[in-house]
């Protein structure tokens, strides 16, 4: 389903988003994150060999935690990025979804070690980008949000889908959302928001 990806174009878009995010993030959360990180780093000199470095919402970060630890816990506990939610803990509900090199993954099933040298974007990062803002507006206009617990994951799924397939059919949209459970909306208004994005905002993704 996501086979239409063009890696050169992807990395270009990625860089664009990355720079957008990083300029905004630096004003908002990065100071807090950096100070947390550095204090963490000072406290855990235990094994410099196992340090994992990756790019989180446009900022280079490193972690000395056990590489088998779940990315979800690293994000929520170490970085205060609580937009990713734990709904099931077994990769079924998509509440914890993040973008890993601009492809959706469930962070509850992603070991920290597997993100070495990769780019991680959470809902906090995505929502600062032009893409994120555009998806947000569509979600608002189409009534895609009810209780909101699945919404960050749905935003991530939408970004991942449209990034790899600018003109998805309804079936492809449904397939693209099928790793994210929602119990409130019946998916109808989320699908419609994405159809609108595909029809009217295609230039953002290609």
């Amino acid at each position: 389903m996501l086979s239409g990806a063009n890696s050169a174009a992807n990395s270009e878009i990625y860089n664009k988003i990355k720079s957008e995010i990083s300029s905004k993030v630096s004003n908002e959360v990065s100071n807090e994150m950096n100070s947390e990180l550095s204090s963490k780093a000072n406290n855990t000199v235990k094994n410099s060999m196992s340090k994992v470095t990756f790019v989180l919402n446009g900022q280079a970060v490193e972690s000395s935690e056990n590489p088998t630890k779940r990315l979800l816990d690293i994000l929520r506990e170490d970085h205060g990025l609580v937009g990713a939610k734990e709904g099931c803990g077994e990769g079924e509900c998509g509440g914890c979804a993040v973008l890993l090199d601009y492809k959706i993954v469930n962070s509850c099933l992603t070991p920290l070690g597997s993100v070495q040298d990769k780019q991680v974007i959470t809902i906090e990062g995505l929502s600062l980008s032009t893409e994120g803002q555009t998806i947000k507006k569509a979600f608002e206009d189409y009534g895609s949000v009810q209780c909101g617990i699945c919404t960050p994951g749905m935003m991530i799924a939408t970004a991942s889908l449209l990034h790899h397939n600018q003109k998805p059919t309804e079936a492809e949209i449904r397939e693209g959302l099928s790793g994210n459970l929602c119990r409130c909306t019946g998916y109808n208004m989320i699908v419609k928001a994405i159809q609108y994005l595909a029809d009217e905002k295609g230039e953002l993704w290609c």
Binding site: G87, C88, E90, E92, C93, E170, A171, I173, R174, E175, G176, L177, S178, G179, N180, L181, C182, R183, G186, Y187, N188, I190, V191
Partner: peptide, 16 residues
């Protein structure tokens, strides 16, 4: 678990 107890996904659903 939500693996054993099945609720609909977007793929199981139609335009209502």
């Amino acid at each position: 678990t939500v693996t054993d107890y099945i609720i609909p996904t977007a793929s199981d659903t139609v335009n209502m």
